[in-house]
């Protein structure tokens, strides 16, 4: 496959740190505008070459976690006030985003954020900015994963469909040859078939390029399917963690995130209220 030499690139980068996890977040606290406490003592680890899913409802702090890792908080008047973020043995907590990307972490933001006025090809070139020789080979690798993008390479990204934009956003992140790929809600607003395709590609990236993946999702069922390990967040901290298979069988997770009642069948509104109350104790 064309993935051959990137494969070695990723593994040389990982070499020497094989013992430790790719990423470890230790007890971080994030405050916005000096008053709004968003993350309260969040900890999680992403083992090398695994897929880790981070689940949780709206406002749990998933996207904030992504922004904390990539150093984007200062652009939104936020900061990490306690704890640290360690990537392959180095404390990257207050690094500049550009340095974090150079170190091997890429984030595909929620809402895709492609460069709308640039063509598909130019978007990919921008994605390869950190590698001064962002060559045809890397572009071809992206097109191998996303053949639709090749057909549209000279079109402006703003006119692509939602699914194509998501593919472009992932492809653009791949141009930096990331060692840790983080995706924030890649399935948001996409048709079920496209969601399948995107998740399939994430699995392939992990198995073919040995890219470590941190996946933020609301689509818990699909995320738990492909993940090795999963964390569930509520109100700015982790409330449940474990191997994805075990979490998928956990009765609380089934009830609250997978929408499967233990007894099956319809439940009354009174039960739902009861569940909401119980959920706070999770």
């Amino acid at each position: 496959m064309t993935g051959q030499d990137t494969d070695t690139a990723a593994s040389t980068r990982a070499a020497g740190d094989d013992a430790g996890p790719a990423l470890a977040i230790n007890n971080i606290q994030v405050i916005y505008d000096e008053v709004i406490l968003v993350l309260r003592g969040l900890s999680l680890t992403v083992p090398d070459r695994q897929i880790v899913a981070l689940l949780g409802s709206n406002g749990a702090g998933k996207s904030t976690t992504m922004k904390a890792i990539t150093g984007l908080l200062p652009t939104e008047h936020g900061e990490v006030t306690e704890g640290d973020i360690v990537y392959r043995g180095r404390d990257i907590t207050r690094w500049d985003t550009a340095d974090i990307v150079r170190a091997g972490i890429s984030l595909v933001m929620e809402g895709r954020h492609v460069f709308e006025h640039l063509t598909v090809h130019e978007n990919l070139m921008a994605g390869g900015f950190t590698r001064s020789g962002a060559d045809q080979e890397s572009v071809d690798r992206v097109y191998a994963y996303f053949p639709q993008l090749r057909e549209r390479q000279s079109q402006r990204a703003g006119y692509l469909s939602g699914g194509e934009q998501q593919m472009l956003a992932i492809g653009r992140a791949l141009m930096a040859d990331p060692d840790l790929l983080m995706l924030d809600e890649p399935s948001l607003g996409l048709a079920p078939l496209l969601v399948e395709e995107i998740f399939g590609i994430i699995e392939r990236l992990n198995s073919e390029l040995h890219t470590t993946v941190l996946l933020v999702e609301q689509n818990a069922r699909r995320a738990l399917d492909i993940a090795d390990h999963a964390y569930i967040m509520e109100n700015g901290k982790v409330v449940l963690a474990g191997p994805a298979g075990e979490l998928a069988e956990n009765p609380d997770v089934k009830e609250f995130y997978l929408g499967v009642a233990e007894s099956g069948g319809r439940r009354s509104y009174r039960d739902v209220k009861h569940h909401k109350r119980r959920k706070r104790w999770l």
């Binding site: 984007l72 985003t97 990307v101 460069f115 006025h117 070139m125 921008a126 900015f129």
Partner: peptide
């Protein structure tokens, strides 16, 4: 050029540009 495209990328979406490692 790499920097020219980066400049247009910054004009389009600053956060996304930062995430490509563009200063």
């Amino acid at each position: 050029s790499r920097h020219g495209i980066a400049m247009r990328a910054v004009a389009d979406d600053q956060q996304a540009a930062l995430l490509q490692g563009i200063s």
